[in-house]
Design a protein around this nucleic acid. Sequence first.
DNA 1: CACTCCTTTTTGATTAATCAAAAATTATAC
DNA 2: GTATAATTTTTGATTAATCAAAAAGGAGTG
Lengths: 219, 219
Amino acid sequence: MLTSTVENYLKALLMLSNQGEKRVSTGDLAKSLGVTPGSATSMIKTLAEAGLANHKPHYGVLLTDEGRTLAVHVVRRHRIIELFLVNILEMEWDEVHVEAEQLEHVVSDEVIARMDKLLEYPTIDPHGDPIPSADGTFIERPVHQLSQCEEGQRVQVARISDQNSSFLKFAESHGLTPGATIEVQRRNEHADSITLQSNEEEITLGFTAANRIEVELVG
Amino acid sequence: MLTSTVENYLKALLMLSNQGEKRVSTGDLAKSLGVTPGSATSMIKTLAEAGLANHKPHYGVLLTDEGRTLAVHVVRRHRIIELFLVNILEMEWDEVHVEAEQLEHVVSDEVIARMDKLLEYPTIDPHGDPIPSADGTFIERPVHQLSQCEEGQRVQVARISDQNSSFLKFAESHGLTPGATIEVQRRNEHADSITLQSNEEEITLGFTAANRIEVELVG
DNA sequence: CACTCCTTTTTGATTAATCAAAAATTATAC
DNA sequence: GTATAATTTTTGATTAATCAAAAAGGAGTG
Ligand SMILES: [Mn+2]
Ligand SMILES: [Mn+2]
Ligand SMILES: [Mn+2]
Ligand SMILES: [Mn+2]
């Protein structure tokens, strides 16, 4: 059985490699997990020895097919749990990530299967992220960054790529939740900001914030 | 924060001290957790240093009030989770113990509170065990062992004090679940057995098995 | 009170995960 | 092409939890 720590490293590698192409640097991996580079190096070796990752010293690390499959299943558990917590236990969307971060390592396949059924085989989590299917299929919807949308464009919020609780609370309070339709009013490259019409209300975001919101173009 | 291991030791101590009176021996504690006596001794010291237990070397260990409170909350989490898995996720009563043994260490108070509400503040778990209340109240119903009931006695199953999956399956298949009413037909001290009428069916149990079934006397 | 038996504790090692700080390596700049 | 900066790896220590086996302690028997 894999330890929680190993599962967290696998998941981080999957996310950082952007679902499979480019090698991940030790430093990025360490930063994303909040450990020192030395700790990351040491775990990378462990993963490589277990056949879960491929390590080219000084040039980065990449999951093997086996490692990727395991990582995708951790992500599946994480997202099903998040949706379960929101839809069944009626928790807030900004608090379920932290909870799922722990639960993903201990819930059995049986429990996940039951949650999946109760939720009627969902494909999207509370933050708009796709839920990998039980057979390991994991597809990213092609989406655009809100920060790069043009003036006058009508778009639909697809996902929020930031799990920070206070950012999520902020987004929700301005109607920026998956599925919401908004319109880009103004875009000011110099001011580093974009102004939106959402929920009868006008709101201006800096590009950094707008970067965390991904959208789909509407009609 | 307490580690899972510490929580498991606290819970074992609570159970073995029969809710608070007698000292627990290192050997019994080790056996109940499946570790060597040396491991138990070492953890007992850790608990004593943390003020969670009181250790009299060579004479046993007992939880302090603080340790007991923590242990009771672990038991509360365990039993709410078990009931949740059975009632909401429709899992079998013989598989939820193993699951809860892991989940009890990671679910937040928030999640427990939500489950508690959804279950309408239950007081008994799927095996008939009492669920301690949020304020730490933990009362055992006074019950009798089925093995000591007299012939002709009508009783109601109160709890099954064995979490073994196959024993639970067996009990269920003969209608021996909490709430069921049964009648003692015969009792044979020499044969070490007791015969019951349950569910239109007659069934004979050895005293060892009957010991694991606790009952309440019926009018 | 000495001997034996059983239990408990101690000792010494091991494993997983981590950090701080030193050493090595790669990339970049002159 | 050597010096410098940044990143990565290595080294040595630490913590929690465990085990096997040796040492110590307690209780009962004669
Ligand atoms: Mn996690
Ligand atoms: Mn999510
Ligand atoms: Mn447990
Ligand atoms: Mn139970």
